[in-house]
Nucleic acid binder design. Sequence first.
DNA 1: AATATTACTTTGACAGACATAGTTATATGC
DNA 2: GCATATAACTATGTCTGTCAAAGTAATATT
Lengths: 121, 121
Amino acid sequence: MESLHNSDLVRGNIDAFILRVLLDADNYGYQIIKELGIRSGGRFELKEPTLYSSLRRLEQQGLIRSYWGQETQGGRRKYYTLTPDGRERFKVKWQEWQAARAIIDVLIGDGKELASGDGQK
Amino acid sequence: MESLHNSDLVRGNIDAFILRVLLDADNYGYQIIKELGIRSGGRFELKEPTLYSSLRRLEQQGLIRSYWGQETQGGRRKYYTLTPDGRERFKVKWQEWQAARAIIDVLIGDGKELASGDGQK
DNA sequence: AATATTACTTTGACAGACATAGTTATATGC
DNA sequence: GCATATAACTATGTCTGTCAAAGTAATATT
């Protein structure tokens, strides 16, 4: 399984990924990981420490709130829900990504000068 | 001037930016910064310590080589040139970016659920 | 002479992602 | 019933890339 070396290239977007999932519905940690795995077609795997430290950060910033689900059986689950601020923040994050993507696209080029052999000037 | 908070969202792509510039022509540090500023329409500003530590890293990895320009007057300039490995590495970096971009696009959404008011489910 | 600009360098701090490990509970296999 | 696997969350510490701050040295400008 390949996935992609994660870290640097997705850095800064993980908070947005989580907010995006919570935009659809309240959810709990483990399921958020699964959900991101599914949505990415198995190409992205969010690690647990990364997830839970993100969640803590987001909660401290008032972008999400948490509550314990009342499971009658099975392990406890802490659910997270978006706050209005979180909703707003996602919008901003989304726009920032659009802007960053455009800049990176320009600076990294469109791949025309790659071809197969080498680059002629 | 706004530019964009840099760091996290472009992280991991800076090496590729530099390699991309050197793909066009040998160049020296200060000019690479200028070049990236121009290509991005002033929206991206590479900081000096970031540039020079990137250059050192790239040189250690054998992706670029350096030589002092023989300026008869004016300050000394250390020029950098791509090695074949560097050329190859740029290709890889480029492809990694394409892959990462696709995944991020999926996970952050297309913005349909943003609209203006709020999201209806 | 003072200031600005070009060009490169050093040091240290910060923050996000993750490896490693551990805890608690339920479910499953033998 | 005991071992193992899996679900779900938590804690600790490390690594790496980016950048702020500051400095050096030379030329150009006022």
